[in-house]
């Protein structure tokens, strides 16, 4: 592993660079193909509304994949992530327009652990609502 962040340089409360990730219907079709998850709630508006959703929603695993990019972009080596977990609290709604949805991710160091590891707590918001809960990663720093 080759983290570009030094354990000695971070403290509890250190903020990671935040990032926003746009998600359109095209993004979801591409993710469906890459991940093999073809559930129609992620691309078929009629179906999504028929099961009580406000509109097509993003794959929870897509949101999970985007959120951890704040950590992997920070450390450089994605292999420095030794644990990662989330709770899917609310869906990311993706309207069929030019803009789609937006996932806004912030993260900060919540604890310094043994063996050069830190716990990073992530917050993922979309349309003003928290879409992931208990979103935490353990990362091994240099």
């Amino acid at each position: 592993m080759a983290s570009q962040i030094q354990y000695a340089d971070v403290e509890v409360g250190t903020e990671l660079p935040a990032a926003s990730f746009p998600v359109t219907r095209a993004t979801l079709v591409q993710y469906a193909g890459a991940s093999g998850d073809f559930n129609p709630i992620h691309w078929n508006e009629k179906f999504a509304k028929g099961v009580g959703l406000p509109d097509v929603i993003a794959h929870g695993m897509f949101t999970m994949a985007e959120a951890i990019r704040v950590v992997t972009d920070w450390v450089g080596d994605p292999g420095a992530v030794v644990e990662y977990g989330v709770r899917f609290t609310r869906p990311v709604v993706v309207p069929n327009d030019d803009r789609g949805g937006l996932i806004e991710v912030t993260a900060k160091v919540a604890a310094k652990l043994d063996d050069n590891r830190v716990r990073v707590d992530l917050t993922a918001m979309s349309a003003g609502q928290k879409v992931l809960g208990m979103s935490r990663a353990v990362v091994e720093l240099a």
């Binding site: 992530v81 644990e83 977990g85």
Partner: peptide, 10 residues
Amino acid sequence: VVHGDQKFAY
């Protein structure tokens, strides 16, 4: 079925 939580340990 909906996906509630997901965690990985590598």
